[in-house]
Structures are given as C-alpha cells and as structure tokens.
Design a protein around this nucleic acid. Structure first.
Length: 302
DNA sequence: ACACGTAGAGAACTGGT
DNA sequence: ACCAGCACTCTACGTGT
C-alpha cells in the first residue's frame, strides 16, 4: 500500500513506532522523532454507528403521516383473545415473545431516530465550527453512550450534541471554548454547561488527563532539539512532579517551560518566543512556570 | 532582540445556599 | 439550580539588559 513506510526510527533505530491519525503523524515512541507528517488515516470512510459492521442504518420515518404505522401498534398485556377467552399454553408464550420483540423494536427505532437527528445537528455544528472528522466521530460515540444511558430524555438533543462535541474536543486536545459553541449553536450557554456537566458525571469518559511528558518529544522535535534534551526535560519533569509543580497547571505550559530550562542547561537555548510559538502557550506562562521550576529545584541557569 | 513583570479579563471548577 | 470566589492562562502593556 505505502511503499515508503518507515519501519525503523532513523534516529535511534527503534522499531517502536506510533501513528496518530488525529495529528497525522508517525513518530518514534522512544525518542519522539516525527518520521512522517500528513499521513493518511486508512480507516473506514464511514462510521459504524451500530457497531455491527453493517452500513445499514435505520432511516427516519418516511412521513409524519406514517408515524404510527407498524411499530407503535401495541400488543395488549392481558392474555385474552378478541372473543374474551383466556389464551394459554403455546399461544400464550408466543405472545410473551412477541411483546418482548415489539418492545425491543420500538425502542430500537426511537433510539435510531434520535441518533439520526442528533447526527444531523452534529454535522451542522461541526462544519460551522470547522471541526475535524475525528472530533465528529468521537462526539458521536459519546452521544451514543449518553443516549444508551437514557440521559437525553427531557433534555434538548441540541444541547447534548453540543456537549458531546465539546467533550470530544477536550478528549482530542483540540479544545474549543464555550464561547465558540454559544456563537454557532443557537443554545444558551447554560444549556450547554448543564448538558456537559451531566454527561461528565454520568458517563465514565476517559478524557485522558494529559501529562506534560506527552508533549516533550513533539516540542523538542519542532524546535530541532536532540533526544538528549527530551531525556533531560523528562527528568526535570520528574523532579517537578515530586514538588507538585505540575498539579493544576496546564500540561502544555509545564512542558514548554521544562523544555526551555533543559535547552538552556544543555547549551542549546531556545527563546521563550520560539517555544511559545510551537507549543501554543504564551511567553508569560512559560515564564511563570519556568520560574517555579528553577526556584523550587534550585537550578542556576547562568 | 530578548527577558521579565504586571494588570485586567475570561474560562472552568468548587462550594455554599 | 444559581451565584461567588478561585486558580490559572491569555492579551497587552511597559521596563530592563
């Protein structure tokens, strides 16, 4: 398929490579060297919302006029036939089975209908906000979980959709502010935060608590710093963690500051501006964090 | 050019009511 | 459900080397 696929890190020779289709990078998991950029996600083009590997989806009702057709018909709970006679034996257990399947069919269809309209709104919002496909898919998974837990009933689908996208962005580290959502969805801020809150409380979302270490290889690579600096930075972060300098701070800020210190200590200085540009944190934050680090760890930079 | 510090505002979380 | 207070980061400055 890809004839030029790198199998070994060109720097340290490790075969321990990883691919990140969100960022579009293939990189060495040991030294962090980015070996390829803009790689293509070979995954399926469509989303398997059903989890059954079929591309089939239950569509919306073809017409409101047909709304009650078929599935909404009730099988009465009492085991009495049209003539008022009790139904027994095999007939009776057949009825039980029929009721069971009817329940399933009905809830399945309303589930899919909800999902369908949620996905429509999700696509609308996502394209308005320029969100990636990966984010949309993540959000769809989150929303589906919420729906399965029956958390959408009584709330607006739109609010839950917005919250799903919000969480998906967080999870994929492409966070958007609530302001962005308020601007593009005609929802009130409160509606979104409420939905967000209940989702966060009820779904066991593993929004990976990102650690500063995760950013180090990438930052160093972008700054043209060698693997030694990656190592030095990570050691620095280890000490910083022990002194609780990393708690409650943005991991990117801490990582950027640690890189700044390590680079200077190893005679490969980079300016705060350079680091700020590639890390997405400001010089001010780098200053604040790196001050804490050198003060607490008793590092002399001169 | 670079580093440093500060003020004010905004975002998101917490706890009290 | 709502508000006030919070710790943190950002923007936008001015100052110092």
């Amino acid at each position: 398929m890809e004839e030029n696929t790198v199998v070994k890190c060109t720097d340290c020779g490790s075969r321990n490579l990883g691919e990140d289709f969100v960022r579009g990078e293939r990189s060495c998991l040991d030294c962090g060297l980015v070996l390829a950029e803009n790689i293509i996600d070979p995954g399926q083009e469509w989303t398997d919302y059903d989890g059954d590997k079929s591309r089939a989806r239950a569509g919306p009702p073809t017409s409101v006029l047909w709304h009650d057709k078929g599935l909404s018909t009730d099988i009465h709970w009492s085991n009495i036939d049209f003539a008022g006679k009790r139904i027994t034996g095999a007939k009776r257990s057949q009825l039980f089975r029929m009721r069971k399947w009817q329940r399933r069919a009905r809830s399945f269809s309303s589930f899919e209908r909800n999902m369908e309209s949620a996905l429509t709104e999700m696509s609308r919002l996502a394209s308005l906000m320029d969100l990636t496909k990966a984010v949309k898919e993540e959000a769809a998974v989150i929303y589906r979980k919420a729906l399965e837990k029956d958390m959408v009933r009584g709330r607006s689908i739109d609010a839950m959709v917005a919250a799903s996208l919000y969480l998906a962005n967080q999870k994929l580290k492409t966070a958007r502010s609530l302001d962005d959502f308020e601007r593009h969805s005609r929802l009130k801020r409160k509606a979104i935060t409420r939905a967000h809150k209940s989702m966060k409380a009820n779904l066991k979302l593993r929004i990976a608590v990102s650690e500063p270490e995760e950013y180090v290889p990438r930052f160093c690579n972008l700054l043209g710093l060698p693997p030694e600096i990656v190592l030095a930075t990570k050691n620095l972060l280890l000490d910083a963690r022990k002194r609780e300098l990393t708690h409650g701070k943005s991991p990117t800020g801490v990582a950027a500051a640690a890189v700044y210190v390590a680079a200077r200590l190893n005679q490969r200085p980079r300016t705060q501006r350079e680091i700020a540009d590639i890390s997405g944190v400001t010089e001010v934050t780098i200053r604040n964090r790196y001050k804490e680090i050198v003060d607490e760890l008793g590092i002399d930079l001169d």
